[in-house]
């Protein structure tokens, strides 16, 4: 059984950048998973089974990292020794915080029943537009090797993603899922 490359981009034969071909990623993932998945070793000896389990788990982790825009961004930065867990006060501008507070207030003020669904959709659309803008800006910073700038954008992406998750959760609550 082969061993796998430690860099997730190299693992899937992709260029190390923000913009990746999602279809190529998922095709390559399926191809490799087809080679290392434990099901391929159902009748093998235990050491091979264990190796298959490890390789397959690693492949899943790599795939999920690159598939998610936010996790891909953090991973790209980590390849340039930037730890996104380390948040400096200077990374977060006052404008950003104010904007976040405003958006959150909007979400909190919506009625707690189904009448809020239309406004939730609007709010989600607003956040999605901001997300897409910031993703573009992350790509530009990163391509220009401006990693500190990219890290600042990353934190904005983090805020926006969290907010979108909360909007989704708010919608589920109101729909009674």
């Amino acid at each position: 059984m082969q061993s796998l490359k430690s860099n997730y981009f190299q693992l899937f034969n992709l260029p190390q950048s923000w913009d990746i071909d999602q279809d190529a990623l998922s095709d390559e993932y399926r191809k490799q998973q087809g080679e290392v998945h434990p099901d391929r070793f159902a009748g093998a000896i235990d050491t091979e089974k264990l190796r298959a389990l490890q390789l397959s788990s690693y492949l899943n982790e790599a795939y999920e990292t690159l598939k998610s825009p936010l996790r891909r961004a953090a991973y790209l930065l980590s390849l340039h020794d930037i730890d996104v867990e380390q948040v400096d006060q200077s990374d977060l501008s006052m404008d950003l915080l104010l904007e976040q507070i405003q958006l959150r207030e909007k979400l909190d003020e919506l009625p707690k029943d189904e009448s809020a669904l239309v406004d939730l959709d609007k709010l989600r659309a607003e956040v999605t537009v901001k997300l897409e803008r910031q993703e573009k800006s992350f790509a530009e910073c990163f391509a220009a090797a401006n990693y500190d700038g990219a890290k600042k954008v990353y934190h904005e992406l983090q805020f926006l993603n969290k907010l979108r998750t909360e909007i989704d959760a708010g919608e589920e609550l109101r729909l009674g899922y």
Binding site: R30, Q33, G34, H37, D39, R40, A42, G43
Partner: peptide
């Protein structure tokens, strides 16, 4: 049938 090896390895996979 696939897991016991009666079908070729690349037939299909379940994730």
């Amino acid at each position: 049938d696939v897991l016991i090896g009666n079908k070729s390895a690349d037939s299909f996979l379940l994730l």
